[in-house]
Design a protein around this nucleic acid. Structure first.
Length: 942
DNA sequence: GTCAAAGGC
């Protein structure tokens, strides 16, 4: 059935596609011989031509067809055929299941009545009319009274002595000098873009100017100013700063609101919140009724939430002519936002930082006399050969430098420097160079902390080791070296913020976390390796990647700025100046680098119309193929129907602040009586891994995690058991010791606990849980490992891989990308044989290989009963799933029994989703018991 | 054989 595979050049494809359209041929199969960007364009254009497109075998075979294509075709897959899994059910099990099914009530007659419910639910999600009509005269009087009260209070605070000192401080900020110009621009324009460097005071002053003016003009009661921040910590700290500048306590006129935490009151007029909080609020208030001014801060960071918000706001402005929108950005790309909003005026505020001297690789080599040794695999000494054979990993920027003629470009530099530049390989960071640079600063430059930007855990750990054995830097009475990484326990410690003893120099080895999330005050020297690990999304292979790459000029600028906060500083850049000049201006916005299913669900939830059309309005619209993939997943998990409308399940998922798969897992847990485990696992997957990665005691940490997993072959169970043990330790008052001994982060665990409560509230809001019944009513199978794994399967599907025996080991295969590996941090890493034939996972990412980060070993029955829909296989003798990728064979009676049970389960589930209050235990006890019976009689894995 | 960073009514 496969047509002949053709090799085509990129410039031939268009005419061949035209031929396909006009001729009698059914399909065209192209073997890829060009880059991925070309493929995506090709795929999109072919689809515009009305042809179906699918990529097979890691995108090596591209198929265009006049008929819809299956998403798996063994004939085009060179990697492996998918194996049949033979299901052997014992007669005893079969008899029990048949009996249980016979006892179960026939639920099919009742399900028809639910359709009316579905239709009623399709009406707008919420309509909360603001009852302006009620504004009786007494209401107006109250507001007037409140407005003048606010003004009196503001004036009395201003008069106080401390306020005068505070004002003197504020007046020194660059933003203060533009106060009048800013307020006039806000009054005259609906949209305003403000650009300003760090330290200019825009975040603390501009919202405050508006607040002061509104109160002064007796509009205090009517105004509601919102300022969004991308991070929780900045929302709190900025709000606290402004409250103190106004001489008030936090939560009076100035407050904040972040997830699970708020300090605000009836009197709050200026609210700082995370962008996510505002997006959630938009579901209830699509017009932001009642908001007078909205400031969106840090938009230059181009986070997915901010980019999403901006599309919504541009559509909203005509409906809210009285709303004022102020976009705040770093200097570099303010014009981009101005153009997006119809050339909105831009105000620029100069920054206030100390000058930072810049040194590039060539200067550093000259100063340190460090000698770069040629790379082994790349080298045989002669530079011409190096140029002709660039290492496979090298990127365009590094290649660009390989073409530079060092002797000409650097003729004013010494010979050793030129030789080192010749040997420099941008593909790999030279830690010896970093060490030499640190030592140079410590020996020859003045006092002050050193901040080193590295890409990840491994580099931090190795450099730490190098410093420890360095004869000069290893002196722990003179140098305080601190690793700073999001998953290291030190992040939660205060050491980094405490000033070191005066005779010690602090050296911080950090990831990007120190670029914007954590500020270390007394940094004078920054060493920048020029790289960061960055996610990207390969739409063709439906694969997320996390690879080190060169940072943008904007990031490099931000890193440099970290040296000039307290006094003039120095920035040592471990890459040549010509490379810096060739860096991209900005990083690709997050919306172009991430899987989009959650965003797509939010678009439907906010009723913003067709997904693709909406996203096409973005500042930089995502690849249509990425959008298509996201919609495809939402359809597979049953959140969207064929017309891209929300299903009943989809509407429930909208209410949960979770990735749709994790949300579904949570709903399934509540339905199938594993509520507590589902809450815990959902919280961990949505937030972050509570296991920390200590730098010295990695093996111990690994062993602890494995002991939590027991023999479950599941990272998810390890999370669950760790959380439960923490709860126990907390009850007995030994939380701290417990966390320390078990390499767990108390902050993360506490956050998980709070999130569990939020999820429980939300499940109660949508009717799945009746809190008054107590936890016991929803945890009948809370200790049943097979049932918990089945719930994981129900939620995380189609994230499933096959485990196949290869001699004494097991190999793993996924439908989209073929062979994958278990991530070495998983409890399943290094295990050679597994009791069950599949793994379900929530995170697959390409780094040095394609890794499944967290996995749970599951049975055929878990997949058959809780996975994707069952299709009769083409041969007619079995069942297929996942577009033909998974095959199951069994005697006809077994197949029928499984299909019948699956049918009953689906019916029960559908009714429960449409009528959430339905009691599954009383309505479907026998069907669920039959499922449990099968799950417990696990097939022997061959 | 490995672990960038953020975020949610």
């Amino acid at each position: 059935m496969a047509g002949e595979v053709e090799k085509l050049d990129e410039n031939e494809w268009w005419s061949r596609i035209q031929q396909l359209k006009q001729g009698s041929q059914q399909e065209l199969i192209i073997k890829r011989n060009f880059g991925r960007d070309g493929q995506n364009t090709l795929a999109n254009m072919a689809q515009n031509q009305g042809l179906y497109f699918h990529a097979y075998n890691k995108g090596k075979a591209l198929v265009f067809s006049k008929v819809p294509l299956p998403d798996y075709r063994a004939d085009l897959d060179e990697r492996h055929g998918s194996t049949q899994n033979e299901i052997k059910m014992s007669t005893e099990t079969e008899r029990r299941v048949v009996n249980l099914l016979a006892r179960s009530k026939d639920t099919s007659t009742q399900s028809s009545s639910t359709s009316t419910f579905t239709r009623a639910e399709k009406q707008p999600l919420s309509s909360m009319p603001i009852s302006r009509s009620e504004s009786s005269s007494s209401f107006d009087t109250m507001k007037e009274k409140f407005s003048s009260e606010l003004r009196e209070l503001q004036n009395s605070k201003k008069a106080s002595l401390s306020a005068k000192a505070m004002l003197a401080f504020r007046e020194k900020l660059p933003a203060y000098k533009l106060k009048d110009e800013f307020l006039k621009a806000v009054a005259d324009n609906q949209v305003l873009v403000v650009s300003g460097e760090t330290g200019c005071g825009k975040t603390t002053q501009l919202p405050q100017f508006i607040l002061e003016q509104e109160i002064e003009h007796l509009r205090g009661a009517d105004c509601s100013i919102i300022c969004t921040q991308p991070r929780r910590i900045s929302a709190i700290s900025v709000a606290a700063r402004i409250a103190s500048e106004r001489g008030e306590s936090l939560g009076e006129t100035v407050g904040y609101q972040i997830r699970l935490e708020a300090k605000r009151s009836e009197r709050t007029r200026l609210l700082f919140c995370t962008t996510g909080v505002l997006l959630r609020r938009l579901v209830q208030e699509p017009d932001l009724a009642g908001v007078s001014h909205l400031l969106v801060d840090e938009i230059h960071e181009r986070g997915i939430n901010e980019d999403f918000l901006i599309i919504i706001l541009r559509d909203l402005l005509p409906r809210r002519p009285d709303l004022r929108l102020i976009l705040m950005s770093a200097t570099l790309n303010a014009d981009l936002f101005s153009r997006y909003f119809g050339n909105a005026p831009v105000i620029h505020i100069p920054g206030f930082t100390f000058p930072v001297a810049e040194l590039f690789l060539e200067d550093i080599l000259e100063k340190t006399r460090y000698k770069i040794k040629p790379e082994f695999d790349n080298y045989q000494g002669n530079s011409r050969r190096r140029r002709r054979q660039p290492s496979a990993k090298s990127d365009p920027l590094t290649e660009m430098f390989e073409d530079v003629d060092v002797d000409i470009q650097y003729k004013n530099y010494s010979l050793p420097t030129r030789q080192s530049l010749e040997a420099w390989a941008g593909g790999q960071l030279d830690l010896g160079l970093v060490e030499a640079t640190i030592e140079h600063i410590c020996r020859h430059e003045g006092d002050g902390a050193i901040l080193v930007f590295l890409t990840g855990w491994d580099e931090i750990s190795k450099l730490l080791e190098k410093i420890k054995v360095n004869t000069y830097l290893g002196n722990s009475s003179k140098f305080l070296v601190l690793p700073l990484h999001g998953s290291m326990p030190t992040v939660n410690q205060r050491e980094i913020f405490d000033r070191p003893p005066s005779n010690m120099r602090q050296i911080v080895l950090a990831t990007n976390i120190a670029e914007s999330s954590i500020t270390i005050d007394d940094v004078v020297y920054v060493i920048d390796c020029g790289k960061a690990k960055e996610t990207s999304y390969d739409a063709l292979n439906k694969l997320a990647c996390l690879l080190p790459s060169w940072i943008s000029k904007a990031s490099a600028h931000q890193r440099r700025g970290r040296a000039g906060r307290v006094q003039p500083g120095e920035c040592y850049r471990l890459y040549p100046k010509v490379l810096h000049d060739a860096m991209p201006q900005y990083q690709l916005p997050e919306i172009l680098r991430t899987p989009l299913q959650e965003l797509c669900l939010n678009i439907k939830s906010l009723q913003l119309g067709a997904i693709a059309a909406f996203l096409a309005k973005a500042l930089q619209p995502p690849d249509p193929l990425s959008v298509k993939n996201a919609i495809e997943i939402l359809k597979t998990i049953g959140a969207l129907d064929d017309t891209e409308e929300l299903t009943a399940l989809g509407r429930h998922l909208c209410k949960l602040p979770l990735d749709p798969n994790i949300g579904k897992m949570l709903l399934m847990g509540s339905i199938f009586q594993c509520l507590d485990p589902a809450l815990t696992i959902a919280a961990a997957l949505a937030h972050r891994d509570p296991f920390v990665l200590p730098i010295n005691r990695k093996e111990e940490a690994d062993a602890v995690k494995r002991s939590f997993a027991g023999d479950s072959c599941s990272d998810h169970i390890a999370l669950l058991k760790a959380f439960e043990a923490w709860k126990g330790a907390k009850r007995s008052g030994r939380e701290r010791a417990f966390c320390w001994e078990n390499f767990l982060s108390p902050i993360t665990l506490q956050m998980m606990d709070d999130m569990r409560n939020q999820f429980l509230d939300l499940l109660s809001d949508i009717g799945f849980v009746n809190k008054s019944k107590g936890a016991k009513a929803y945890n009948h199978y809370g200790d049943d490992m097979e049932m918990i794994c089945a719930v994981l399967c129900a939620g995380l599907y189609p994230n499933v891989i096959q485990c196949k025996r290869r001699g004494k080991r097991t190999a793993f295969y996924s439908k989209d990308v073929g062979k994958v590996d278990i991530h070495p941090s998983s409890v399943n890493a290094g295990v050679h044989l597994f009791p069950l034939p599949y793994m379900i996972y929530s995170d697959k990412v390409k780094t040095s290989s394609i890794y499944i980060r967290d996995s749970t070993n599951i049975s055929d029955y878990a997949l058959l009963l809780f996975g994707g829909s069952l299709m009769p296989s083409k041969s007619g003798e079995g069942i297929e799933m996942l577009g033909g990728y998974l095959h199951f064979s069994a005697p006809v009676s077994t197949l029928h029994l499984i299909q019948r049970l699956r049918g009953e389960l689906d019916k029960l589930l559908q009714r429960k989703i449409e009528v959430p209050a339905l009691d599954v235990l009383s309505e479907g006890i026998d069907v669920v018991a039959a499922a449990v019976e099968l799950l417990h009689s696990q097939n022997v894995y061959q």
